[in-house]
Design a protein around this nucleic acid. Structure first.
Lengths: 249, 249
DNA sequence: AAGTGGTCTAGACCACCGC
DNA sequence: CGGTGGTCTAGACCACTTT
């Protein structure tokens, strides 16, 4: 199987990315049937008019996505469509995404406050340093599904317009605001668990106290490695779950 | 900063992996201080006596891990140690790992049974097909922390020794058993959420019914893309959380 | 202008698989 | 044995950042 691709060498988009995108499209569109083998790397590189390392890099991306399986001495095979079929009912896969596609948001609180001890430690600042505290409730389809608490380090908060912040947050994600302020959220470390909803959370999520929540705790860094914020989120477990692929096994 | 490394060109371990491992060690050991810059790629490749692509590949692994940050025109910098400091209380990062380091296990049930409808669908088999059902309780430090239900596709189950299976499972992980039977769990897709413990789960986890559980649902494939098993796990939320890095933001 | 990482090439040799 | 993917080399040019 040798999918035809069109590459634009004058484009700023790297060749390997153009190739990977088109190859992924051909597979998901069904042009390359499940179970079939791609041509070997030499032939593909030849047909695509790129060098073998470049072709390999494109293929490696799809292997990483789980669309292809490579075996030495055998070949490169399109794996079962089931591998990539998402779980039913699940939608949002992490909160970074969710912050980009805000349906509606209630801003519960936006204040400057002293950082709680564990937050100060995680932000790597002195205890009781001033931080920007934001609390929001997220809605989808008119139902509240998440209550989000953020503590922003001052070096990040000072680039935001504090007067219009509460208003801006009803229509835009926090990350989008940070980006337009020149701060680039880049990577985060997060912990996922479960907890019972307390009175406050139950009220805003319109559920019973004690109902199970998906609890997320996150530390976010910008593209220079600086810590931007600490976030604590509770999701209504009936409306939210996280989906992920795990490799190796 | 130019960490000294020793590479063994006769080793079957790839050079880029040897380099990445030693560089990671030098950073986590503090030999390369947080915030300092590595030498540029050309110098590193020269000092390490490898080509630049090989040096880049090693560096790329650590960037992926979040230990390094690269900026074009600037350099490669060791980022804050906080990036890699694990969250407190959290230990297991996914259940595939957990299956490898079994502390103790109670086998609750090992039977051949008809697959429930949703399991049959996920295993891509006809409804009510015979599958191997396994139910276990996992303990750590003497306390139960997880109750695990597995449904194994017949093509995987038939390679296991059914007589000794219950005994084997008390001392070994299911994945280790599958591997010794020639089946290689390779990648999985899983969904994480939360739920309230039912009577059965509460009994085995020694908690109150209604207490919050971390709920995991997983579909596992082998290295040829075939579906091996479906798993459903409930974790005591007080003893378990999942930790992960997310990129891009 | 100088220095950095980002991309790409055209080869090479090796380990593994199936015939 | 021939064919496959896995690794590695020694260059090249480019985009971006800083001086």
């Amino acid at each position: 199987m040798n999918p035809t691709v069109e590459i634009d060498r004058s484009s700023p988009v790297p060749l390997y990315h153009q190739l990977a995108t088109q190859l992924r499209g051909a597979i998901t569109a069904g042009d390359i049937p499940t179970g079939s083998f791609l041509d070997n790397e030499l032939d593909l590189a030849d047909a695509w008019h790129v060098s073998r390392p470049t072709a390999r890099r494109a293929i490696a991306q799809l292997v990483d996505d789980g669309l292809l399986v490579r075996r030495r001495g055998v070949g490169t095979q399109v794996v079962s469509a089931e591998v990539r079929r998402p779980f039913t009912l699940s939608s949002l896969h992490d909160d970074l995404d969710a912050d980009g596609r805000a349906p509606t948001t209630d801003v519960i609180d936006v204040t400057h406050a002293q950082a709680p001890a564990h937050v100060a430690r995680e932000l790597e600042i002195a205890p009781a340093t001033r931080v920007l505290y934001i609390e929001r409730a997220r809605h989808a389809d008119g139902r509240p599904f998440a209550i989000i608490r953020n503590w922003l380090a001052d070096h990040a908060a000072e680039h935001l317009d504090n007067d219009s912040l509460a208003d801006s947050l009803t229509g835009t994600g926090l990350y989008a605001l940070l980006r337009s302020a020149g701060i680039n959220p880049h990577r985060a470390r997060q912990r996922l668990g479960a907890k019972a909803a307390n009175e406050h959370e139950a009220h805003w999520l319109e559920i019973e106290p004690g109902a199970p929540l998906v609890a997320m705790h996150r530390i976010t860094h910008d593209d220079t490695g600086r810590i931007i914020e600490v976030a604590d989120t509770g999701y209504n477990a009936q409306l939210y779950s996280v989906e992920m692929s795990v490799a190796h096994g």
